[in-house]
């Protein structure tokens, strides 16, 4: 399963969780076309927002559906044969550093201990995007009600600003 396929499967899973909990969920398709580990700060921001929405729902006394979902593996690569294979190395012929290329957690591997907050280099190339996430909230239950009427600022704009400048021409 490629990183992109994982990303799609997890995106679909998030949408299923939101749907099961009557959370209105609108996200943009990821524009990045290169290799990725299946997650990125943007995806993880979506997870955080979904968890917040579920917590709001719980505080409102509504039922929260958190289990019973499955990963849609149709986004994964098709099995070409019934034979399963595992690629291994001849450990007696190497000093270990080359063999690390085989294991998924080799040095340099995207998922090798990379903290979730590390931004893949491609992110800085994208223009800040705003994705609208509407929550059905009880005004008394959650503090973030003031965001209901405004498009929610994407996390990128928090880093790169809104592009507006003050009277001295400096960015706000």
């Amino acid at each position: 399963m490629t990183g992109k396929e994982k990303c799609k499967a997890l995106k679909k899973l998030r949408a299923q969780i939101a749907d099961a909990n009557e959370i209105q969920w609108v996200t943009e398709e990821c524009p990045y076309e290169g290799e990725c580990p299946g997650t990125c700060p943007r995806c993880e921001e979506e997870v955080r927002m979904l968890e917040e929405a579920l917590e709001c729902r719980r505080k409102e006394g509504k039922s929260v559906v958190k289990s019973g979902f499955s990963v849609d593996k149709k986004f994964g690569s098709e099995e070409k044969s019934d034979a399963k294979v595992e690629t291994v190395s001849n450990s007696t012929e190497t000093d270990g550093s080359e063999d690390a290329q085989i294991a998924p957690f080799a040095p340099g591997s995207p998922l090798m201990g990379v903290p979730a907050w590390n931004m893949p280099p491609h992110i800085s190339e994208n223009k800040p995007k705003v994705f609208l996430l509407e929550k059905q909230q009880n005004e008394d239950a959650c503090e973030s009600t003031s965001r209901e009427e405004k498009p929610r600022r994407g996390w990128l704009s928090r880093w790169f600003g809104s592009g507006k400048r003050n009277r001295k021409g400096k960015k706000k």
Binding site: P37, T39, K73, G76, A103, A106
Partner: peptide, 20 residues
């Protein structure tokens, strides 16, 4: 020696993180 997130149904049911 490392860990691998978001493994899908390779270690068992569901999404798993492998810690080695």
């Amino acid at each position: 020696i490392g860990y691998d997130r978001l493994r899908m149904e390779t270690d068992g049911e569901g999404v798993t993180t492998l810690v080695c």
